[in-house]
Design a protein around this nucleic acid. Structure first.
Length: 557
RNA sequence: GCGCCCGUAGCUCAGCGGACUAGAGCAUCUGGCUUCGAACCAGAGGGUCGGGGGUUCAAGUCCCUCCGGGCGUACCA
């Protein structure tokens, strides 16, 4: 249970008792919100409930605040309850309770920060899902970082999470990919075969084709085109996906499942779901194509699901079957898709579709991350596959490193139109907030090492010695983590993590400046032990935060 | 044109409807290392929160409108 929940419950009890004894009049249902005051003199937490009640109670808010605060029952957490103008009830956490949290955090260790909000519900996070036609470029990095951290956060919040990559292994793009591959393969074998139009440019397919020729031999050369492609395609797809997976791994991204679009077609699911919609008269035929009758559901236009030309399904067509599979076959309670802003036009239609399938649209959330504007030393970089101006994620990681990359992408909310300055990102100095956070971790690790070298055993300590302002501030900050995790999970906003990490690192540094931990004076041994436990607890909290962000926690830098 | 998103300090961005001074990092200026890591700390300057209306006891936060920018608006994915 979070601190805020406990306090809200205390307020609720106090309000009820005041009302049942007639001191306060009845009032309608009002949500009890526990807030975090900005000024220290207003305590650690506060509620403005009296202000919200004033009107319906026809009483001055300050008076209501006074009554409620006087009726708050004793609790370990609470050190002080006060009422304040114009109508707040302020809580200060008890020093003893704060001190006891050092033990709690250390005992929880790598589980510290976990919450039970998710209650084991099954949630799927699908992200990146770029067509497997070549290496991932920097434009895909943001979604990868957001998606993977979001999955971490949801897991920490108690959800049963599956991380999924949807592999578009059929459709037009792949046909162009294979056609180009075939041409490159034949060229590598010395045959004069022209590139198709359109074709995938770039060196990737040339290399892949010549690798396939070298490693699989030239059997396909003598076959006719479609047979040759049938021979080469599975291996080309496999290798491209392996490369994508490898690079995502470098970025700290792991998947639980790779789902193939093609299976939706071969398994017959696509046809079954289409029949289902046809029965509901949501599929109409027009101009030789089949359409999803989105207009019947209030959308502007119908959407093609089967093309008239080749009778193949459109992207949206297979998406119908895919989302049906997510909800009805794998039975996810909740599905989260992380998409780039270039797909945002599909959000409303997918919600309409899910609704038509009989699923509560609230169970589907689509997170749109805005396109990143890449810069170098202030100069805007325009990427284009056609002009071959492209930076791959792998190149980005060579320049910037995974930790810095993740921190930068993570610290902006998905909706912000962010800029990414490559030059700034690779500056390995205090200019980059990434290192501020990691430095704090390394520093605490170093203190613990020093203590160990000097043979100081801090497994038992008197935590009541922790009364310095910076010690208590540090405890206050580090016990915020479970709340940060809950909030990030609830709002699906992992960008709260790096901001919390900065605050925690700052609290650590201020504590370090103010409080000598390892001392050579014998009389300081007891306070040293208590502080070492605190350092250990802080390291646990910061380590977990870095872990949730998919970043490393370096013991040395 | 229509739809979605964004506009907060010189720059890059947070800001969970509330309490005299709207925050952080970077940049600028001043000060601080003979004991645990100065990739640090202390302090200063810098903002009509794009403009204008409205709702409210209270608006950067909600509503309307205008301005500026990004993206989308395919029988492509």
């Amino acid at each position: 249970m979070q601190i805020t929940d406990t306090l809200a419950a205390l307020v609720a009890v106090a309000l009820e008792s005041a009302q049942s004894s007639g001191v306060l009049p009845a009032a309608g249902d009002v949500e009890i919100k526990i807030e975090r005051p900005k000024l220290a003199e207003h305590g650690d937490f506060s509620t403005s409930l009296p202000l919200a009640l004033a009107r319906s109670m026809r009483m001055p808010p300050l008076k209501i605040a006074e009554v409620i605060s006087s009726r708050i029952t004793r609790h370990d957490i609470v050190g002080k309850v006060e009422h304040a103008a114009p109508g707040f009830v302020n809580f200060t956490l008890s020093t003893e309770w704060l001190q006891s949290q050092v033990d709690e955090v250390r005992a929880a260790a790598e589980n510290f920060g976990s919450a039970t909000l998710g209650a084991g519900k099954r949630v799927q996070v699908e992200f990146v899902s770029v067509n497997p036609t070549g290496p991932l470029h920097v434009g895909h990095a943001r979604g990868a970082v957001i998606g993977s951290s979001l999955a971490n956060v949801l897991e920490a919040a108690g959800y049963d999470v599956q991380r999924e990559y949807y592999v578009n292994d059929s459709g037009n793009q792949m046909r162009v990919f294979y056609d180009t591959l075939y041409a490159r393969y034949m060229q590598a074998a010395g045959h004069d075969v022209a590139l198709p139009d359109p074709a995938y440019p770039g060196e990737y397919l040339q290399e892949l084709a010549s690798d396939l020729l070298k490693e699989l031999g030239g059997n396909a050369v003598s076959k006719d085109r479609s047979e040759a492609i049938a021979d080469l395609a599975p291996e080309a797809l496999k290798r491209t996906l392996e490369d994508i997976s490898r690079v995502l791994g470098l970025l700290g991204v792991k998947y639980d499942n790779w789902f193939y679009e093609g299976e939706l077609l071969t398994s017959g699911r696509f046809d079954r779901v289409l029949d289902l919609l046809e029965d509901s008269e949501l599929i109409v035929e027009r101009d030789g194509a089949k359409w999803f009758a989105a207009t019947k559901l209030g959308l502007e236009e119908d959407i093609v699901v089967i093309r008239s030309g080749d009778g193949g399904p459109t992207y949206f067509g297979t998406d119908i079957a895919y989302h049906h599979e997510k909800f009805f076959e794998r039975k996810f309670d909740r599905v989260i898709n992380v998409w780039g802003a270039d797909h945002h036009g599909h959000v409303s239609r997918l919600h309409a579709l899910v609704n038509a399938l009989g699923i509560d649209p609230d169970r589907l959330t689509i997170i749109i991350n805005q396109i990143v504007n890449f810069k170098n030393e202030g100069e805007s970089l325009k990427f284009s596959k056609r002009n071959n101006v492209m930076v791959t994620i792998e190149e980005l990681l060579e320049e910037v490193g995974s930790d810095a990359c993740r921190f930068i992408f993570l610290s902006r909310s998905p909706g912000s139109h962010m800029e990414f300055d490559l030059g700034l990102a690779k500056t390995q100095s205090s200019e980059n907030p990434v290192y501020y956070v990691q430095y704090a971790y390394a520093r605490m690790s170093s203190i613990l090492r020093t203590a160990e070298e000097r043979g100081i055993n801090y497994q038992s300590a008197d935590l009541s010695l922790l009364i310095h302002e910076q010690e208590l501030e540090l405890i206050r900050k580090l016990i915020e983590l479970p709340g940060v995790v809950e909030r990030a999970a609830e709002s699906l906003e992992p960008h709260h993590l790096p901001h919390f990490a900065m605050e925690l690192a700052r609290a650590l540094q201020k504590f370090y400046e103010a409080c000598r931990v390892v001392s050579s004076e014998p009389q300081d041994l007891e306070i040293s032990r208590a502080r070492l436990q605190l350092v250990d607890a802080a390291r646990v909290a910061l380590g977990r935060t870095l872990d949730l962000m998919g970043m490393s926690a370096p013991e040395r830098m």
